[in-house]
């Protein structure tokens, strides 16, 4: 029988989360973010968090909610352009921010989960991202050494999951979620739908359950759209 990872609620899923921890949160913009885990982080009020997430939400949604409550002291992200409160806290020095190229962020999470301590990439060579990093030439081209990232907790959001923790994501809501699931010492997956064991086709599972320690069904999903754009039919 498969090992069951199911917990009953966000509250139970976040047992053990403490102030000062490093957290990973999946999502790109507001797409595929662990909304229910973020709500619970706001509710329990843990502080001095280091959050690794591609973006920082918008002022009143996603990680923006944690920023409003000053629960985050450091962000590791690639793009934070849609959040005025974030920009204010960063420019005033209240919030420490480590901006890193998106592909390097993804690969650093993947490496952390895959037991690869560091890797060389050409991204950021010759820019301020490269400051203090080892440079090595491969095939005549300079590369910089980037280290792996891991976290105390990783919070990911999937479309469907089963009790074994196997996950399937929908469309572009997959983004950073699979790598972050790999890189969390404890990975919490919130899903829209928890299906019976055996229902997910093993050929099409995106994240194997071995990377997930706790899984629960999110109570509600707003799934806000950041830039609603339509064409005229």
């Amino acid at each position: 029988m498969a090992i069951s990872k199911v917990v009953s609620s966000a509250e139970e899923a976040l047992q053990g989360v403490e102030s000062g921890m490093t957290l990973m949160l999946g999502g790109f913009g507001l797409c595929g973010i662990p909304e229910n885990c973020i709500e619970e982080l706001v509710r329990i009020g843990v502080k001095d968090l280091t959050c690794i997430s591609n973006n920082a939400g918008v002022d009143d949604f996603g990680l923006g909610k944690l920023l409003q409550k000053r629960q985050i002291i450091k962000m590791i992200s690639s793009y934070v352009g849609e959040n005025e409160e974030f920009e204010r806290q960063m420019l005033s020095g209240e919030l420490e921010v480590d901006l890193i190229p998106q592909g390097s962020l993804a690969e650093r999470c993947r490496a952390g989960g895959a037991g690869v301590p560091a890797f060389f990439t050409p991204a950021g060579y010759g820019t301020e991202v490269a400051e203090g990093k080892e440079v090595r030439i491969f095939d005549g081209k300079p590369h910089i050494l980037e280290s792996a990232l891991i976290s105390d907790f990783a919070f990911v959001k999937a479309w469907k999951g089963d009790s074994a923790g196997n996950l399937v994501f929908k469309a572009t809501a997959r983004n950073f979620n699979p790598m972050m699931a790999m890189a969390g010492m404890i990975t919490v997956a919130e899903v829209e739908e928890l299906v019976p064991l055996g229902e997910l086709d093993p050929n099409t599972i995106h994240t194997p359950g071995i990377f997930v320690q706790r899984i629960f069904v999110g109570e509600k999903y707003e799934k806000r759209i950041e830039q609603r754009t339509v064409r005229h039919a």
């Binding site: 901006l99 190229p101 998106q102």
Partner: peptide, 9 residues
């Protein structure tokens, strides 16, 4: 300071 996103890669 918006960030580089994927531009550097």
């Amino acid at each position: 300071v918006k960030g580089m996103g994927g531009a550097m890669d």
